[in-house]
Design a binder for these strands. Structure first.
Lengths: 224, 224
DNA sequence: AGTAATTGTGAGCTTATTTTGAAAATACAG
DNA sequence: CTGTATTTTCAAAATAAGCTCACAATTACT
């Protein structure tokens, strides 16, 4: 996830600020709302990926807000409450809350639950097994490589080689290192073999073959 | 969901019995396992919709089990633990647990969390009795497969193989993984066996046999 | 138990990939 | 510019992986 947007809805300023601090330290973008109706009106503008809602709020309580919000969107939602009573937990989860945190909580718990909820909610949309770098896209799950959306058909060694180089783009690897990493500890192949695979890789990458650069006297590197 | 199956994995008999009692009263079907490896071997046979796993167990702890289980399936999982420490929570949620309950808990909380997790996990899936992908239709209830509306008569292993591949279309599986998933943990068959079944599958699928692709050096995948 | 259907195996065959070595091309240093 | 070191290229040879098939073993059905 590039830039995850979280909306915090709580009437207590101190709590909002605290959560904002935790989240921003971890790279999230945070919007605040002081009450439910304010939050509802912001939904469309800010398009958050996650809502964190205090249960106890004046005017519109967290549960009512959750009901409304679920009608408008399918944004995942975490309840926040000082009341640890069981009834609230059940009520919250049944209304479509995706998780429930009892105040006071530790920063780590908040972050872990946020991650967990986001992972679940965006599980199918998010390609967590994909590496994109420049025009290149490497999908480990389907074992496919795409260059500007057109698929490249690579053999195993080619795939491994490109993978190492692209994953650590900018870093130079000697042929020996590449043999070690792609072929294995006990490789017995000559360094010429690497050259040949680099050649076919460049060939298959066509115009973009120059993404793999030769570092004279040292080895190869991937550079965007 | 017709009949929801829950597998409870805990070494303490008392805890298992208690959870079983709660759940059965609410209409769930419950299987028990006393340890992680036992549970893993039961997964294929019992096909639970949800796993409830104690973190502290002899031989294979809950986290290790969760890791293994997530490789084999996407069954949602709730951790159960007496240890309320933050580290455990984070660890559990990061390993793909869908929720976390601290013992002792109240029956109502357990049920609410179970419902919540199940609702999330099976929210987007349709009736979940039928899988359609490309020209293929797999009906789990009648154990029937149709290709462009004309029925395919598949044997059990063929069905299992096609099912895994189609359900996770795009994903490459090694022969070993397929043996593991379709034949079971304790398979003793050679990898050639997979080849043979793939062959007959392709044969039966006629023109669409190429839906199952060979990924050279890796295994097979289903690709539309 | 007897029969049919399904599943498993291994060996030969086919095909794709990998390796190699030597010649040609290129880069660098002085 | 020249000589040397390094890289690139190529096609043939070696290797590895996949496919097929006939038949053996197992399982399911009556």
């Amino acid at each position: 996830m590039k830039q995850t947007i979280v909306m915090v809805i709580d009437d207590e300023e101190q709590m909002r600020k605290m959560i904002r601090a935790f989240l921003e330290k971890d790279g999230y973008t945070v919007f605040e709302a002081t009450n439910g109706s304010h939050a509802l009106s912001l939904l469309n503008k800010t398009k958050p990926h996650l809502l964190i809602v205090d249960v106890m709020m004046p005017f519109m309580d967290g549960f009512t807000f959750a009901q409304e919000a679920k009608l408008l969107s399918s944004i995942p939602l975490i309840f926040l409450s000082a009341k640890g009573e069981e009834w609230d937990k059940i009520h919250g989860l049944k209304l479509g809350g995706d998780d429930y945190i009892v105040k006071p909580f530790m920063p780590g718990e908040l972050l872990a639950r946020i991650e967990s909820v986001l992972r679940r909610a965006y599980a199918n949309k998010e390609d967590s097994n994909v590496l994109t770098i420049g025009p290149l896209l490497i999908d480990y799950v389907s074992h496919q490589v795409k260059l500007n959306d057109s698929p490249l058909s690579l053999t195993r060694k080619e795939f491994g080689l490109l993978n190492i180089l692209a994953k650590n783009s900018g870093r130079v690897y000697s042929r020996e290192q590449l043999l070690h990493l792609v072929w294995g500890e006990d490789h017995k192949s000559s360094e010429r073999t690497v050259d040949t695979h680099i050649k076919t890789l460049r060939l298959k990458m066509g115009d973009h073959g120059n993404l793999i650069e030769t570092v004279w006297g040292i080895g190869y590197k991937f550079e965007v």
